[in-house]
Simulated assay, not measured.
Amino acid sequence: MSTSDESDAKVSPRHVSDGDYAKLLAIRTALRGFEQWSADRATEQGITARQHQLLLAIRGHAGDTAPTVQDVANYLFIQHHSAVELIDRAVRSGLVRRTTDQQDHRVVRLVVSPQGQDILEGLSGSHLLELAQLASLFEVLHDVSDAPARDER
């Protein structure tokens, strides 16, 4: 995700039409709806939405080695100490295991436990289907040409 920076200030302003506002609302509503839907599915599996995100961050990590606490913190957009607390709870729940890095024994790496993997697999299939529907909404919103503004203020 990007945040505002100097490059954003260089973009020339344009008129935001009623259609633009409607698109933005539709997208934000769909994203928030997905987040709520996802949280409900996690709860049904006996975990929190944050634990689901943690499992996905660990399992989805690309690379030759398992992710570190800092990797997970970056994926979840949280501070290191918050990631540690989340991981501690996940370890106590049997969802995640800590391992020592083979090359640098000071580094702790994270792996999803078999129990966590079962839960994550159960959630991931339905999430992929739901995301496919959400993606189609983005395509429709992107492909629709702007109708003339209803109100030219």
Rank of each mutant, 00 (worst) to 15 (best):
L31A: 14
W37N: 02
R41L: 01
G33K: 03
A9T: 08
G19W: 04
K10D: 08
L31H: 10
D20L: 05
D8C: 07
R28Q: 13
R32G: 08
R41Q: 11
A22I: 03
R41V: 01
R28V: 12
S4H: 05
W37D: 04
S4I: 12
D40N: 12
A26Y: 01
S17T: 14
S12H: 04
G33R: 07
D8F: 08
G19L: 01
T3L: 15
T3E: 15
G33C: 05
G19A: 06
P13L: 09
S17Y: 01
R14P: 00
A26F: 03
S4D: 05
A9Y: 02
A30F: 00
S12Q: 08
G33W: 02
D8P: 02
I27K: 09
Y21D: 04
L31M: 15
Q36Y: 04
S2K: 05
V16C: 07
E6F: 13
D8R: 03
T3W: 13
L25A: 11
D8G: 09
R28P: 00
S4A: 11
S4C: 08
S7A: 12
I27A: 12
K10I: 07
K10T: 12
A30R: 03
D18C: 06
V16I: 15
S7P: 02
D8T: 14
R28M: 12
T3I: 13
H15M: 11
L31W: 07
R32D: 14
I27F: 04
T3N: 15
A39E: 14
V16T: 07
T29K: 15
A30W: 00
D18E: 10
S7Y: 07
P13N: 07
E35K: 13
E6T: 09
D8A: 11
D40A: 13
R32E: 14
Y21I: 06
A39N: 14
T3K: 13
S7G: 03
G33I: 04
D18P: 00
D20I: 03
D5H: 10
D40E: 11
E6N: 08
V11H: 06
L31C: 08
Q36A: 07
R28T: 14
S2M: 01
A9Q: 02
L31N: 13
S7V: 11
R28A: 12
D18N: 12
S38P: 02
A26M: 06
